[in-house]
Write a protein that binds this DNA or RNA. Structure first.
Lengths: 340, 340
DNA sequence: CATTGGCAGTCTGCACTTAAGAGTGCCAAG
DNA sequence: CTTGGCACTCTTAAGTGCAGACTGCCAATG
């Protein structure tokens, strides 16, 4: 069994290794920390930690580095989160405030998070499935090209481009728009989809084709509503930490650029009671991200629902600081987007 | 003066160097191409090319690599563009078609371009400044939080979140929305901004504050209209070509992630009569991108205006293929977004 | 005057050796 | 349980030598 001091040793090994990227030896530990015991004693503790597979030696005779399991134990012990530095708080504050486009808010948020953590930051778009149709607008872009815009009462705006094979005129489209608004306004998404599927029946055969196309585009739009998107920033940080990866970071970057992968990863994370979750190293192996750790937490959106944001970086990262940053940013974003 | 054959030699040096990343020697040239002269003759030509600073030797006694100036001459000579492969054409075709969100269209376009070129691809959002207001929608998200949505007849949709300090009720907001639509519908952007600045005067003092906030958000929105954005894909490709950069690619990636830099770069490019432009190596030095080349071209948007798209990658890139791909993708995107 | 073959000279890249340094594991003693 | 000591292992850096590649120059040739 690992002793109390053993866990302390694990802690300093993680700290030092994260700071220096060098395997940590017993000597340097007794030099830099006041354990009150000799290097040989530390070595005995380290032998135990190694038996438990919390640390490992890269070469027969070198210092130790934490294993994924070691990081896991370390993170679970991280009860006391280091508070953010004043500079970091200030960065969040200045970022806040001022009116802005939703895209801009999410864009700024993700850049902020990336700067605070020096990692790749991710913010999932609000999902907002429990919303109601507020307004539908049809815009004629060219003689047979139409853009549909859908606005919901939770603030989601969806647009879509489509080709209707028939030629349409503005007047017809305006009239169609009014009828759609009269029919759909205030409906929930599921009801709206159903109503839309019946909608073209009201029209004479000559118009039904075009109306049908528009209606099915709107249905797609209504149902695709849940289809999440991500914004990402700070991929340069991954390159900066390139040496933390055994091979090339190219496949890692590729995996990260694949939004589908990340959304699946987000979906499979199991949040604790605070909505926070940490996934370390091999726990992400099935996503091609076996050498990275992912920290995510939920944030509240105006639909009263929850989306996620977080960071992804090499297993060897500053968990303490990054967890604090992710939490703080989520708190601020919730305040900005959520219901008061 | 560089002879005709000298330019041929330059061409094969660029080709071979791009393909192999190895300095090209006189021997390998006579082995691989049928110049009908001996290696010594090629060496004489290379000496001339070196005098003109079109090629350079990394070490005293090694093969030659093209200089930025050499690439420039090479690109200017590229009259005959290699047509895209059938597979590449097919990729563009399948990507086309099916209704889609504007964001999705641009997102797919940029991913497509990145895959075709194996470089970082960029697409600028349509600017659409010559458009007219189509519809304004106000959505109450929380008691004092409002989202404004602006739709123009060119298909641009802008949303914005703002806090009005007063508490508002739905009814008031709905009424305000109707009045705004009545006032602004059909106006051009400049007129709309002017009209909006006078708008709050119509309201009693008790309401003027809230209305003023909403109006100024809309003004921002109308005027910020030109403020362009970019979508980007394929940063992983930059990492793959890491060895083409003298130092770390970290600063390069940082520069590329800075949208402002890229927009400035886009703005300063000088298109030829086809709207195409190539900027090579040191020509981009002021943007921190002195070791990259940028290929861009315009595409038509529904406003009848032109935005740009292109790729950015190491100076050592396959110009012929990439130029063809950028042109082809722009053509397809124009067809998709532009007026028929 | 362009072209050619030959040859000396230069530089890189790789394999190999050597030396220094850091750290462990183990043991016997406190 | 802790400690000091010591032999052993392994990495890293630096230095050496050699093979290979390419150029530059020159004198000869058509």
């Amino acid at each position: 069994m690992v002793s109390e001091r053993g866990l302390d040793v694990l802690r300093v090994i993680v700290q030092d290794y994260v700071a220096s990227r060098e395997p940590v030896g017993s000597k340097s530990i007794v030099d830099r920390y006041s354990f009150g015991v000799s290097a040989a004693t530390i070595r005995n503790d380290m032998a135990l930690l190694e038996e438990e597979e919390l640390i490992a030696a890269p070469h027969t005779s070198s210092g130790r580095i934490p294993t994924d399991k070691g990081y896991r134990v370390f993170v679970n012990q991280l009860a006391d989160l280091r508070p953010l530095s004043p500079a970091q708080r200030a960065a969040i504050e200045t970022f806040l405030g001022s009116s802005a486009d939703l895209d801009q808010v999410l864009g700024r948020t993700v850049r902020l998070l990336s700067q605070l953590t020096h990692q790749v930051a991710l913010v999932q778009y609000p999902s907002l499935s429990r919303s109601r149709i507020r307004h539908v607008e049809l815009v004629l872009l060219a003689s047979s090209r139409v853009m549909t815009v859908l606005i919901t009462d939770t603030g989601r705006v969806e647009q879509r481009l489509l080709d209707v094979s028939d030629e349409l005129d503005e007047g017809f489209l305006a009239q169609l728009g009014s009828r759609l608004n009269a029919t759909l306004g205030g409906l929930g998404l599921a009801e709206a989809a159903e109503s839309l599927s019946l909608f073209p029946d009201q029209f004479p055969a000559s118009e039904a084709a075009a109306v049908g196309r528009i209606a099915s585009a709107l249905i797609e739009q209504v149902l695709a509503h849940r289809q999440d998107r991500l914004v990402m920033a700070g991929t340069a940080n991954l390159v900066r930490t390139e040496e933390d990866f055994s091979g090339s970071i190219y496949p890692v970057l590729e995996a990260i650029e694949e939004q589908v992968t990340l959304l699946r990863l987000f979906g499979e994370m199991e949040p604790d009671q605070n909505g926070f979750s940490v996934s370390i190293g091999k726990e992400n192996a099935s996503f091609g991200l076996g050498e990275t750790s992912v920290l995510t937490t939920g944030y509240a959106t105006s639909g009263g629902e929850v989306s996620r944001l977080g960071v992804i970086g090499p297993t060897r990262m500053d968990y303490s600081n990054n967890i604090a940053a992710v939490r703080a940013v989520a708190r601020y974003l919730s305040r900005l987007l959520g219901e008061d």
